[in-house]
């Protein structure tokens, strides 16, 4: 079968494109900077979040050297805690769940973006930098108040974090 030269070039290009994109995921998964949304553990009962020791009181808590975990609950129509306060230049793992319908959780202007499915816990880890305020947005239709559903992520200096988050290190 005769294959036209342009077509050969295109085939090679398309295969390279696929390899490149597959590579990007592999790199993203093992390399720094890009974290994939992952299934952190088994199902959670969305109707009984107040019995769960992470989501009964949504909060930010220190779990290691410069590593923090933020337990966030999305609901009609907002996020808890609001604002989410984290210290500058740290690693933050968000664990997000919903207590009613599907919501979105996107830190505006970054690639921290996930769906929040009731019964599931979405986990994503990000590196935060200098102090800054970010908006948090819901990307899925969730009811009449969807358009007003928003949250805040405050990246603050270390000292300020200690002040606002006293007792945050309790296990």
């Amino acid at each position: 079968m005769h294959v036209h030269a342009y077509e050969k070039i295109w085939l090679v290009f398309a295969i390279l494109l696929i390899l490149l994109l597959l590579g990007s995921v592999t790199y993203g998964a093992v390399g720094p900077g890009v974290a994939m949304v992952a299934d952190s553990e088994d199902q959670i009962n969305a109707n009984a979040l107040d019995e769960d020791d992470r989501f009964a009181e949504p909060r930010v808590e220190r779990v290691g050297e410069n590593h923090y975990e933020a337990y966030v609950v999305a609901f009609q129509f907002g996020f808890q805690p609001d604002p989410i306060v984290v210290p500058e230049n740290s690693t933050v793992t968000f664990q997000v769940t919903s207590r009613d319908v599907i919501h979105g959780f996107e830190v505006v202007g970054t690639n921290a973006n996930t769906m929040v499915v009731p019964g599931e816990v979405s986990e994503l880890t990000v590196e935060v930098g200098e102090p800054q305020e970010y908006g948090i947005l819901c990307n899925e239709y969730c009811g009449a108040g969807h358009h007003v559903m928003e949250g805040k992520l405050h990246v603050v200096p270390e000292e300020e974090f200690e002040e606002t988050n006293e007792g945050g290190e309790s296990a």
Binding site: W10, A14, L17, I18, L21, L22, V25, A29, M36, V37, A38, D39, S40, G104, N113, T114, M115, V117, E120, V121, S122, E123
Partner: peptide, 25 residues
């Protein structure tokens, strides 16, 4: 892709997704 399905399955689906562009080409 933005739900909590595990990453291996998502990667497989990514490969089939991009692969479907070849017959379209």
């Amino acid at each position: 892709f933005l739900t909590t399905i595990n990453l291996e399955i998502k990667t497989l689906m990514m490969a089939t997704t991009i692969g479907i562009s070849l017959p379209f080409d």
